[in-house]
Nucleic acid binder design. Structure first.
Length: 271
DNA sequence: CTGGATGCCTGGGAGC
DNA sequence: TGCTCCCAGGCATCCA
């Protein structure tokens, strides 16, 4: 579900409900959704929230005293604002409440590919995020070239690797490669530095526009206020197999790269 | 070390 | 209506 634009939209929609507020209660319905300490305290009970940060697809809720909760939405995860007495939707794994105005924040994730990680210090967050590549909104051609120009993987596999670029998933990989005119199976090491620079610019452009559109809602994705994103209407390849290419009119091709469904234009994205 | 394949989960849609 | 099969936005882990 959520790639960088969706997680950024969740961050922005969640922040007004949390920043500056104190968590009154933190309750966990499933232990196996949490890595690290699982006490209410570790889950931010009693904490005053200072800010919400994001790196790639990871969202961090950071308390004044340094406690951190990392939220990963996986494929079907949601952070939802409700009222404390509203019935809980199915697959709600954790609930936080704040007072004035009384608010409940839910973490639900039907497929359970997502999860929460508790950390005691912001320093630990830096260590976790040091394993990720540069955030997709800031990736530069030099960054990208440095880490992939010796790799023998198909370029799509490299873009999906969170240690190369943080935040790009299956939708935005295909959209970025189309924007740069690069075939998803192109071998990294055979791409010129100029084409890799062009690809980095395409990644930034696609992600920026998708954030402006509040992300792509294929089916489940909603921001914290339950609002859908509208970027699907701007997809040029993802979900458009066999429909005409928006540039040349040729029916778009479907293939599999890195075990993921891949859509591209075989005329605009030559090997 | 690298890169490829597998498995974890639920739910929706297609086809019969 | 109901069954089976296939597919889905991610990622850790295992293997060659």
């Amino acid at each position: 579900m959520p790639e960088l634009p969706e997680v950024e939209t969740v961050r922005r929609s969640l922040a007004p409900h949390l920043v500056g507020r104190t968590i009154a209660t933190a309750t966990l319905n499933r232990n196996d959704m949490v890595a690290g300490e699982r006490s209410p305290h570790a889950l931010l009970q009693g904490a005053k929230i200072q800010r919400l940060d994001r790196r790639g697809k990871q969202l961090a809720i950071i308390a004044r005293d340094g406690r951190v909760l990392i939220v990963q939405l996986g494929m079907s995860g949601q952070m939802l604002i409700t009222k404390p007495l509203d019935p809980l939707p199915t697959h709600t794994h954790a609930v936080w409440t704040t007072g004035k105005p009384a608010t409940a924040i839910l973490f639900r994730d039907p497929r359970r590919f997502g999860g929460l990680t508790t950390l005691a210090t912001v320093d630990q967050l830096s260590q976790v995020w040091a394993t990720l590549g540069p955030d997709g909104l800031n990736i530069t051609g030099d960054d990208l070239w440095k880490v992939i120009h010796t790799s023998n993987r198909p370029i799509k596999a490299a873009l999906l690797d969170q240690s190369v670029v943080a935040g790009v998933g299956n939708i935005y990989t295909d959209e970025s490669l189309f924007g740069a005119g690069i075939h998803p199976k192109a071998n990294c090491a055979r791409l010129s530095q100029a084409r890799i620079k062009r690809l980095a610019r395409s990644v930034v452009r696609v992600l920026t526009q998708a954030v402006e559109a509040r992300g792509s809602t294929l089916r489940d994705y909603r921001d914290a206020d339950g609002q859908a994103g509208s970027y699907v209407a701007m997809h040029r390849v993802y979900g458009r197999a066999s429909l005409p290419c928006t540039v040349c009119g040729l029916p778009l091709s479907r293939t599999v790269v890195a075990q993921r469904t891949t859509v591209f234009c075989r005329r605009c994205q030559k090997l």
